[in-house]
Amino acid sequence: MNKKVRIAVLVSGGGTNLQALIDAQKKEILKSGKIELVISNNSNAFALKRAEENNIPFEIIDKKNFEERLKEILQSHKIELIVLAGFTAVLPDNFVKYYDKRIINIHPSLIPSFCGKGFYGIKVHQAALKKGVKITGATTHFVNEIIDGGEIIMQKAVEVYEDDTAEKLQKRVMEFAEWIILPKSVEKVCEDIIEKIKIK
């Protein structure tokens, strides 16, 4: 049995990116890692239903003792890679340093455009339309202490149309960028982790 990297996906809302990862796992696009756990800071997140339907264990954590509890859960499940898929809480600096190059985030723009503090969800697409950009997209990156400041893993561009609303643009970026590069990025990082373990 080949080694698979144990993955935890952190979610706060609908879980469309979680679904993209689950689908990629079924199609073996994601084959070097396995989603072992879903964690949410929102007990009403629809993403938890997606986890349940796919027999993936899930945990709900609140703001109280957030960092300690999160670390505890991850360690008890022997998690090796953390994927932020629409997770709205900012992870503490100490936590990020502890899991250096082991946390991936997906951001709905081509970083360094429309990123950093205050840029998340639909706000990113509203800002892109306001600026009048002709090309936008999505970026996967490692998480460090700077919001959206970590090393870029992959990017994919998406065209902006003249009649776009923020909602239309958000849907296109998800479908033609986020759902494609997130599974590929997770697979790439899992491959790298396995390679490093072999070298050791």
Rank of each mutant, 00 (worst) to 15 (best):
N2L: 06
K3V: 12
K3L: 15
V5A: 00
V5F: 06
R6M: 04
I7H: 08
V9H: 01
L10T: 02
V11M: 03
V11P: 07
S12I: 09
G13L: 08
G15C: 10
N17I: 09
Q19T: 07
I22N: 02
I22T: 00
I22P: 01
A24W: 05
Q25V: 01
K26A: 04
I29Q: 10
I29P: 11
S32C: 12
K34L: 12
I35V: 13
I35N: 02
E36V: 14
L37M: 08
L37S: 00
L37C: 03
S40T: 07
N41P: 09
S43M: 11
N44L: 11
F46H: 11
A47K: 08
L48C: 01
R50S: 12
R50D: 12
E53M: 15
N54L: 10
I56V: 09
F58C: 08
I61L: 11
K63V: 06
K63A: 15
K63T: 14
K63W: 14
E67W: 00
E67L: 01
R69H: 14
R69S: 15
L70H: 06
K71A: 15
K71M: 14
E72M: 13
E72Q: 15
L74C: 08
L74K: 06
Q75H: 05
Q75M: 15
Q75I: 13
H77C: 10
K78H: 13
K78E: 14
I79M: 01
I79F: 04
E80A: 11
L81Y: 04
I82Q: 02
L84V: 04
L84W: 02
A85K: 05
G86M: 01
A89R: 14
N94H: 15
D100S: 15
D100V: 14
D100L: 09
R102I: 11
I103W: 06
I104V: 13
I111K: 00
I111D: 04
F114V: 05
C115G: 03
C115L: 00
G116L: 04
G118H: 10
G118C: 13
F119E: 00
F119P: 05
Y120K: 06
I122T: 06
H125G: 10
H125W: 05
H125Y: 07
A128E: 10
K131S: 13
K131F: 12
K131V: 06
K134E: 13
I135T: 14
T136M: 09
A138I: 05
A138L: 05
A138V: 11
F142M: 12
N144E: 03
I146R: 07
I147H: 07
G149I: 07
G149M: 12
G150W: 03
I153H: 04
M154C: 01
Q155L: 04
K156Y: 00
K156G: 03
A157R: 12
A157W: 10
E159T: 12
E159S: 07
V160M: 06
Y161G: 06
D163N: 15
D164G: 09
K168C: 11
K171T: 01
R172C: 08
R172E: 10
V173S: 03
V173P: 02
V173M: 13
V173C: 10
M174D: 10
M174K: 12
M174H: 08
F176Q: 09
A177R: 08
E178F: 10
L182G: 03
P183D: 11
V186C: 01
E187H: 10
K188F: 15
I193H: 06
I194T: 02
K196V: 12
I197V: 13
I197G: 08
K198R: 15
I199M: 14
